[in-house]
Design a protein around this nucleic acid. Structure first.
Length: 361
DNA sequence: TACTCGTGGCT
DNA sequence: TAGCCAAGAGT
């Protein structure tokens, strides 16, 4: 049943909804892909990726049958690459078990890789018009303010309170629009730091606004400090080719390609020593380290790195047995574009396209 | 529960 | 400028 809060919100949404490609043609596949891309990622960042992804993989069958390498390459730059691997696996499961039709049942949706509580609710409500809440960061913030809820976000008490509130206020009709309206409101008016309360259609329902406490909410847990690591990477060139390797599935940048190297350890005498050790450990090769090939600073979510890249050569007599290291590959620089990489390694690859690495000696 | 997992834009 | 933040999921 529609309460006055949801009615006021839907009136606002009918006037203010953002025009988005997945809203213009809200098939289950479109909603699903968009929701995967939008996890922890803002709409403006997603838009060009969504358009390109749909041109490459217009339906669940083309996605399911594509090589993982193509999916990761299409995802490069969006981050959180487990989303791409999970979406790809889920597409194969939907084809194999559901004849290519995304299930409507909430429990069945949650069985698909990459679909958790939020995304299942979003797909069920937006694509299938089911009365399900979908609690994301925006909606958590909005309900925390509406209720003057003081439990820190992410705690069980907060989750229970906010999911209950979202379900309680869900209208019987247009649940998908209700959820999307809250997300639009969170992205445009009920902002984290500077909420524009005078423009808010829910102002009269908001306890935080009544108390003047909107900027104190939501309460967040304290964050841990982020460590900084010194990292090295080797551009090993032999006869015009450079060595890259694929990272293992599952961890950071899983399935992506990189220039081999690793973290500076306390036992390393220096950057050169670190790089020689890493290449010996990872590939069984002894290398000569030459000139620098750039210093790259990068911030991940939970740590920061300063990466020192070097031009390197194999010591005389060294060869790489590719059958023993199937994750490694020798490629000419123009081919690097076909290999999905994280931001730092892509910067190195792009520099290689412009500059031939110098040969040690 | 707490931690991992990317990147770009903003202040 | 260095943090903060974003349509979370998996372990």
């Amino acid at each position: 049943m529609s309460d006055s809060l949801s009615s006021a919100l839907l009136v606002w949404y009918d006037q203010s909804a953002r025009v988005l490609p997945w809203r213009s043609d809200p098939t289950p596949y479109h909603i699903w892909v968009s929701e995967m891309m939008l996890q922890q990622t803002q709409v403006d960042t997603v838009l060009p990726y969504y358009q390109r992804f749909m041109s490459l993989f217009p339906d669940v069958f083309s996605l399911a049958s594509a090589p993982q390498a193509d999916v990761l390459r299409a995802w490069e730059g969006l981050g959180y690459y487990s989303r791409a691997r999970n979406l790809h696996r889920a597409a194969q499961k939907v084809v194999a078990e559901y004849s290519g039709q995304l299930p409507q049942d909430l429990a069945q949706l949650r069985q698909l890789p990459g679909i958790g509580r939020y995304t299942a609710g979003a797909i069920a409500s937006i694509a299938f018009d089911q009365p399900e809440p979908a609690l994301d960061g925006n909606i958590r913030r909005i309900f925390a303010r509406l209720l003057n809820a003081r439990h820190p976000l992410g705690t069980p008490a907060s989750d229970a309170e906010l999911w209950d509130a979202a379900r309680k206020h869900l209208p019987a009709r247009r649940a998908g629009d209700f959820n999307q309206a809250l997300m639009d409101l969170g992205a445009s008016i009920c902002l984290p730091k500077a909420p524009n309360c005078p423009a808010c259609p829910l102002r009269d329902f908001c306890q935080a606004f009544a108390l003047g406490a909107q900027k104190e909410l939501p309460v967040k847990k304290a964050k841990k400090p982020v460590p900084e690591y010194i990292v090295t990477a080797a551009v090993i060139a032999v006869e015009g080719r450079v060595l890259i390797q694929q990272r293992p599935q599952g961890g950071l940048l899983g399935g992506m390609w990189e220039f081999p190297g690793g973290k500076l350890e306390p036992s390393d005498a220096g950057l050169e020593d670190c790089l020689q050790r890493e290449i010996r450990e990872e590939l069984g090769l002894d290398i000569q380290v030459g000139a620098g090939f750039g210093v790259y600073k990068h911030a991940y979510t939970h740590f920061r790195i300063t990466l020192h890249a070097f031009c390197c050569a194999l010591l005389p007599g060294e060869t790489l047995d590719l059958s023993a290291y199937p994750q490694a590959r020798w490629v000419i620089p123009p081919e690097l574009a076909a290999y999905a990489m994280g931001k730092v390694d892509r910067q190195i690859a792009n520099r290689l396209l412009k500059t031939t690495p110098s040969t040690p000696n």
